[in-house]
Amino acid sequence: MEGHLSIQLTVNGRAVAGEVEPRTLLAHYLRDALGLTGTHVGCDTSQCGACTVLIDGLPVKSCTVLAVQADGSAITTVEGLASGGHAHAVQRAFQERHGLQCGFCTPGVLMLSSWFIQQYPTADDRQIREALDGIICRCTGYENIVQSIARAQEIQRENQAPLAGEAREGVSS
């Protein structure tokens, strides 16, 4: 198509190739071309963070990234969080601690949180609140979101805790 550019991405582990207009936003490409409607567009002005996805492992606001800018990158959306039929630690934690009400911002919050607990596995509540700076949730008042992220850190630790025998070896190394 005239004026269209070819892009190649890896989206949730799957290779994807497409033709896009340069002005196509990544959020729209994911939703409209790939049918991945888990990524929500909230404010559309890079304030609210509902559209947060991971590009090469880092959370970014996909309403402010052109699809062509992401050419060659690996994208993870909320659809790609669970693996092998198992919910991700943040998904389990948000369910357990009721970290959402209407759920509109939740895909973005989950993506940010998945990066955050990996990057800062022992962050305290103050640091968690700071990390949520780029997320606007109009329902929860953030209380349960903060608790959910703290719970996700615990789940991550439990998941990573090696079996008893391996743990002893791990300590000595």
Binding site: T52, L58, P59, V60, L112, A131, D133, G134, I135
Partner: peptide, 9 residues
């Protein structure tokens, strides 16, 4: 500056 997502870009 801004928030974590913006600082990544």
């Amino acid at each position: 500056i801004a928030d974590p997502q913006v600082r990544h870009r």
